[in-house]
Write a protein that binds this DNA or RNA. Sequence first.
DNA 1: CAATAGATCATCT
DNA 2: GATGATCTATTGC
Length: 207
Amino acid sequence: MKQQVEELFSGPTIDVARRLIGATLYRTIPKGEPGAGKILSGRIVETEAYLPLVDPSCHAYRGPTKRTANLFGRSGFAYVYLIYGVYYCLNVKTEPAGIGAAVLIRALEPTSGIEEMRRRRGRHVPIEALLSGPGNLCRALSIDLRCDGADLRSGGLRLRPAPQDERVEPQVSGRIGLRVAAKWPLRFIDANSLSISPFRKRRQRSA
DNA sequence: CAATAGATCATCT
DNA sequence: GATGATCTATTGC
């Protein structure tokens, strides 16, 4: 199993993005907040690849900074950042140390801990929407900057690959919410899932 | 259904 | 001082 987890992070970023579809993310609620110690989980149904070197939309594109330090570390660790002052986004570091690249986790299907997710997202949010969207899933799973740099092989935030017989062939599309390189075919989804984040019209480009 | 405004802050210029 | 890998509520058709 340990070997299988390691293989989850290996190889080119695009391969990892595909392979993460169907994998399960486990989150243990930290001490000091409601539901501490409870384990929430979900099955990944939507990812986006952010490529090394050539991708102007990757946060690593302009070289390492304090914020993006973990994008240049070892694979299999988390890169978490705050977006629009309001939401957090969870990424899985890919590629060897020194090379900045990652996979953004965009949506999951809840598999356990539904009530805890609802406590954070809202009482009457439908199950399929609880972990749909990168900001929403972080809120539901209590993921924030504390998780930046976390080892995804162990600890309170961990990944487990999909069993062989549960793997699905992901569908490919352009990325969401970007101004540049948005059309690159780097978004992967389990088309059968109801938890895919909605397609939004691309943000207005300057005339 | 589609478009848009506003929330709100760590990071970078 | 400007900028977002977002989301929700609200408006208008």
